[in-house]
Amino acid sequence: MSSPTWDPALYTAFGDHRARPFYDLTGRIAASAPRRVVDLGCGPGGLTASLADRWPEALIEGVDSSETMLDAARSRFGARQGLVFTHGDILRWEPAEDVDVVVSNAALQWVPGHQGLIGRWLEQLVPGAWLAVQVPGNFSAPSHTLMRELAESSQWDQQLRGVLRHTDAVSEPSGYLELMLDAGWDADVWETTYCQVLTGEDAVLNWVRGTGLRPVLDALSPREGAQFEEQYNQLLFDAYPTVERNGVVTTVFPFRRIFLVGRKPDGA
């Protein structure tokens, strides 16, 4: 599956909700003075910049395959010392000898077979290095199952066959834990479901527009994409009812995420 096109403004529209898993993830990294920190799938760069605040003496490198995202990152943070943004493909990335921390937040679900990549990084990273990964675990949630069912309907099947991944997109937490333990790493793997309260009309559709719906919209013409969105949004209304609270339209949108953090033992 090719990489989807990205809209930095749309992606950051729910910045607080998208940022919280990153901080929950990186908060479990206990590296004190890393030489080089790499953020794979850095997107528009705001979260990568927070790593420069945490480790001001380190070289912080954000890597992304989207030039649009990198342009947004460089325009905001390119002047900061010790912070660089590099165009690169996660599939081909390999850690240099000075890389002590690798972070990948909500990116590896787009990479088929990323478990093999993680296994390679576990072997290649230097003793004492940290690896921290977060991937969405909500592929069985209504937001995704309804999208797949609509894409597989007679109206859309021809244009969208093979566009969406689901059961093979990510592993269960136990799978990631076994991968890290088998490599001899100290590992911590967990999952969290965030009960996010979104505001405004079409809130869930707007959320998914920034991420999971991107491959569908890339595969359709603008007119077809608008038609698909209209049909999909009607399904979302039934699955995620809105409630008006104090004059504000709100929608509760549960979102499951999977976290893995590990350290390679000294001498390993």
Rank of each mutant, 00 (worst) to 15 (best):
S3V: 09
S3G: 11
A9W: 03
A9E: 09
L10P: 05
L10N: 11
T12N: 14
T12A: 13
A13L: 07
G15I: 06
R18H: 11
R18S: 06
R20T: 05
F22R: 11
D24T: 05
L25M: 08
T26W: 00
I29M: 04
A30M: 06
A31E: 00
A31N: 03
R35V: 02
R36D: 00
L40D: 00
L40K: 04
P44G: 08
P44C: 12
G45Q: 05
A49M: 09
S50D: 07
L51S: 08
R54M: 01
W55A: 01
E57A: 15
A58Y: 00
I60H: 00
S65M: 11
T68D: 03
L70H: 10
A72N: 10
F77H: 15
F77C: 08
A79V: 06
L83E: 03
F85S: 12
D89P: 15
E94S: 11
P95S: 04
A96R: 15
A96Q: 09
D98V: 01
V103A: 00
S104Y: 04
N105W: 00
A107M: 11
Q109L: 06
G113P: 12
G113I: 10
H114C: 10
L117M: 09
I118K: 04
R120V: 06
R120T: 09
L125Q: 01
V126I: 09
P127I: 06
P127Y: 07
G128P: 10
G128F: 00
P136C: 11
P136F: 06
F139R: 12
A141N: 09
P142F: 02
S143F: 03
L146K: 13
M147E: 04
R148C: 11
S153E: 08
Q155G: 02
Q155F: 00
Q158W: 02
Q159E: 04
L160T: 03
L160V: 10
H166N: 12
D168F: 11
A169M: 12
V170E: 03
E172F: 07
Y176C: 12
Y176W: 08
Y176V: 05
L181D: 06
V189W: 01
E191F: 11
T192W: 01
T193I: 08
T199G: 06
T199P: 09
G200F: 03
E201A: 15
E201N: 15
L205I: 08
V208S: 13
V208F: 05
R209A: 07
R209K: 15
G212Y: 01
L213Q: 09
S221I: 11
R223C: 01
E224T: 08
G225V: 13
F228M: 14
E229Y: 04
F237G: 07
A239F: 02
P241H: 05
V243W: 03
T250C: 14
V252T: 14
F253P: 04
P254H: 09
F255T: 03
F255Y: 06
F259N: 09
G262T: 06
D266Q: 14
A268G: 10
